[in-house]
């Protein structure tokens, strides 16, 4: 009997408690920046594509929903010719972001990507590429890497000495 009354009391108390339910979609939930939602491809501080087509995200993906093809442009930069994520397969585990050596692929707090038609969940590079740097600011892979590209010759990267003069005779 006592437990019945206690239960009714608790129920009544909850009637006046603060609501946990959010009136979605009129109200939006407040998500942390590290929330793992829709995947984007970001750009480096110079506005160039960060993705260098190394295939590590595709390899890390447990559901194999990332596929891409790397190619090179005249400046020597490598970039993806196409980059496709099948969101109808994606489990938003974030392994791709962890695997990415250039901070190119990032998960965002956007989760509103439902579609009536499954094929609309297949995102191509134009759908994925954003204008900004996402969560990681200031990183530019080619400044750190040893490869020469137009505008950054050998020895001009971070922590690099000028190219060796092979024919030099100094000991």
């Amino acid at each position: 009997m006592l437990s019945h009354l206690r239960s009714i009391g608790l129920a009544l108390k909850h009637t006046f408690a603060k609501r946990e339910t959010i009136q979605y979609p009129d109200e939006k939930v407040d998500l942390a920046a590290r929330y793992r939602g829709r995947i984007v491809l970001t750009r480096d501080p110079d506005g160039m594509e960060r993705c260098v087509g190394c295939y590590l995200c595709a390899a890390a993906c447990p559901v194999d929903c990332i596929s891409l093809q790397a190619t090179n442009d005249e400046s020597g930069r490598r970039y993806p010719e196409f980059f496709r994520i099948n969101f109808s397969r994606c489990i938003f585990c974030g392994y791709c972001e962890e695997a990415c050596p250039t901070y190119a692929i990032q998960l965002t707090p956007d989760y509103e990507i439902s579609e009536y038609d499954r094929k609309n969940l297949v995102y191509e590079k134009e759908d994925l590429l954003i204008a900004g740097q996402g969560k990681q600011h200031g990183y530019n892979f080619y400044r750190v890497a040893g490869m020469a590209i137009t505008g950054k010759d050998k020895g001009e990267g971070q922590n690099e000495l000028p190219p060796v003069d092979v024919k030099g005779l100094m000991p």
Binding site: Y55, A58, A59, D64, I66, S67, L68, I85, N86, R89
Partner: peptide, 11 residues
């Protein structure tokens, strides 16, 4: 570790 098989022909 073959990758991309649920995406390569998804288009």
């Amino acid at each position: 570790r073959y990758s991309g098989r649920t995406a390569m022909k998804a288009n």
